[in-house]
Design a protein around this nucleic acid. Structure first.
Lengths: 186, 186
DNA sequence: TTTGGCATGTAATCCGTTACATGATTAG
DNA sequence: CTAATCATGTAACGGATTACATGCCAAA
């Protein structure tokens, strides 16, 4: 994905608007709250934090208990401005790659049974995702009812839920349709 | 995306099962038929074709008219076996990254008007995509009615259509919901 | 004749993951 | 005591895009 600017710094800045955090915390927050549509690895996070600090977009303070090393980062005004600037820019279109669809596209070369297996797995994944999102929504509404960001978090989860449902319905319909198709050529 | 094996060779092999093609043709076929869920650049395609040839998965013949250079690749039996093997393997889960959702997640820091602009753009994109897919379906049904792959192609397009519709409905519902939200903090 | 499409290919560069290295603290 | 969690960071490596370099052919 060269030439396309990394969005890692902006994810970090966004999460730091909620509260100051360590790199470890940022990773945990991503995995907990936006894993439906985003992920980052330590290999990205720590260098990005270092750079954000050099640029003055975050401050860094020692927060370890005892000898333990712990760097707590907080967003600065300059950081808020950079985040705001990025949020304002139109979403840049990126390549979409769906390996499931790719395999189905060449499905003529697959045994019926294998194809059905792929689809059943897809159905189960989509249903599980929809259920998982529902659970998160319930959890947020009770534990985060005061959070000023709550409405926005719920909006993003709503798209995740709808997409998962659409995928599940498609998988169900496709499983039905496949039973009517001609025998395959391999 | 290191450590995750490239799927480029398999896209090529899959398309070559339809008919022998040049690298340029492969790129055109991808852009024409599976751009909804896949893309490749020349920087990937040409080296991949070279390697597939070395591995004996494709044959290469000169097909230029006159002095013009043109390499036509055809899939071999070994290539078919490799493709089949890959198609059989479970779809490997990969990270999903949705920048639109990321921006909405941090939407509290955006002016209402900018947020609405993002959403209207998303709505227009999703609606256009759904319409575009509908057009492709119609086109395929008339021009490719004999193609043995047709049913599979239609199945993949169906998921694209459903997903685009779900996104459009979400964007509409979100635009409605946003009018009811508290004033923003920036 | 010049523009656009056909056609092939490489180099530079960055993104991102995985694996590795290291160590403190806490709960069972 | 020991396993899990907290915590930070780097190195190696592969994937992917973009930009560049080059040239033929056909149509306007």
């Amino acid at each position: 994905m060269a030439r396309q600017p990394s969005r890692t710094p902006f994810v970090i800045l966004g999460l730091l608007t909620v509260e100051p955090m360590s790199g470890y915390d940022v990773k945990a927050a991503i995995d907990r709250s936006i894993s439906q549509f985003w992920s980052e690895s330590y290999g990205q996070l720590y260098p990005a934090l270092k750079k954000l600090h050099e640029q003055g977009y975050v401050t860094r303070s020692e927060g370890g208990s005892g000898n333990r090393v712990r760097h707590v980062y907080a967003i600065t005004d300059a950081g808020r401005r950079a985040l705001h600037q990025w949020l304002t820019e139109p979403v840049s279109p990126r390549l979409v790659r769906n390996e499931m669809l790719l395999k189905l596209f060449f499905g003529r070369h697959l045994e019926r049974e294998v194809l059905l297996r792929h689809l059943r797995r897809e159905l189960a994944t989509a249903e599980g995702e929809a259920r998982g999102i529902g659970a998160v929504v319930g959890m947020l509404q009770t534990t985060q009812s005061e959070a000023p960001d709550l409405q926005y978090w719920l909006l993003t989860l709503d798209l995740g839920r709808r997409t998962a449902q659409a995928r599940a319905e498609w998988a169900r319909a496709t499983l039905d349709r496949l039973s009517e198709l001609d025998p395959l050529d391999c």
